[in-house]
Simulated assay, not measured.
Amino acid sequence: MQQRLLRILQDLGYSLGALDMASSIAKARARLDTQRPALTLVDLGLPDGSGIELIRQLRASAPELCILVISAWSTEDHILAALRAGATGYVLKDRDDMEIAFSISSVLRGGAPIDPFIARRILELIPAAASAPEAQQDTDMGEVSLSTRETEILHQVAEGLTNREIAERLFISRHTAECHIKNIYKKLAVSSRTRAVNEARQRGLLP
Rank of each mutant, 00 (worst) to 15 (best):
L80W: 10
S105F: 09
T75D: 14
L80V: 15
I166H: 00
I126P: 06
G86V: 03
D96P: 06
W73S: 14
K93L: 11
Q136E: 12
A119H: 13
G110M: 00
L161G: 03
S131E: 12
E150C: 07
A101D: 05
L146F: 05
N163D: 13
E124F: 14
L92E: 05
A128L: 14
A167G: 06
I67W: 01
A158F: 01
E168Y: 12
A72M: 15
R121C: 11
R109L: 08
L170W: 03
A87Y: 04
I100M: 00
S131N: 13
E152W: 06
A129F: 14
V91E: 01
R84H: 14
C66Y: 10
T139N: 10
R120P: 06
L146W: 02
V91F: 05
T162Q: 08
E99F: 04
I114F: 04
T162P: 02
L170T: 03
L154F: 03
E159R: 12
L125T: 06
V157E: 00
I172F: 07
H175Q: 14
L154N: 03
K93T: 12
T151V: 13
V107L: 09
G111F: 01
L161W: 10
L92C: 05
E143L: 12
A135S: 11
H78D: 12
G89D: 00
A119Q: 13
T176P: 08
E99G: 05
S131Y: 12
I153Q: 01
I104R: 00
E168W: 10
A85V: 03
M141Q: 09
V69T: 02
H175W: 15
S105E: 13
L92N: 05
P113T: 06
S103T: 03
V144Q: 01
G89F: 00
A129N: 13
P133Q: 05
R174Q: 15
V157A: 02
R174W: 11
S147I: 06
P113Y: 01
S145E: 15
W73G: 14
R174Y: 09
P133R: 03
I67D: 01
F102L: 12
D97C: 11
E76Q: 15
A85H: 02
S145N: 15
A85M: 06
